[in-house]
Amino acid sequence: MTTSLTSISAHGALKGFLLSAILLLTACSATTINISGTFPAPLVQKLPLTVGVFYDDAFTNHSFIEINDNTGDDQYIINSGSSQIELFNTMLPAVFEEVVQLDSIDSANALNGLDAVFIPGIEEFQVGLPQKTRLNVYEIWVKYNMRLARTNGDYIADWVMTAYGKSPEETFQSVDAGVNDAANVALRDLAASFTLGFGNVPEIKEWLRSENFLEE
């Protein structure tokens, strides 16, 4: 009887230890949020340009880490790279007559017929979580650096764009879903400003006029 009790108690202790270890590991690990979504093609008049687009590694694999304010550990890892690519691959063919994806900036010189090379980049990424901001919305703010260059590498324009998206916090909604919704709104916001504002960037407007791409 004594042996049996000891064996049950040892077994229980082992189970308790394993459970505690699992809980501890789960508590320490950061949650990964992969942003996903689909974006509509913008309804705009295409510019008569053949543009090469180059996505660098930092852009393609863009990831943001939100730190836990109390522990200083990673709390959320937000991967938005694939959604950014998805957005630009939907948006650019609607804005320009032809879009060619480049493996490197140098490869632009070897391609005939390219009018310009477009290189998007992310400078800053911020996330606002209801548990931290005390607002009942999830927020995403992104600062982009857009560059348009000639095929020889000379810059035509280098400008900054910001995107903002918010999504109301809902009952029983996961943080993943809230962040994803806010990110999708922010990406749509960027696409809206880019498609309607591209031709109004002063350097681009000037270049389009000088190269006779713009009807007077």
């Binding site: 309804l43 749509r188 916001d189 809206a192």
Partner: peptide, 12 residues
């Protein structure tokens, strides 16, 4: 909103 994109977004 999708069909009229980008004319009826919060900012536009």
């Amino acid at each position: 909103l999708d069909a009229m994109f980008p004319f009826f977004e919060p900012r536009t």
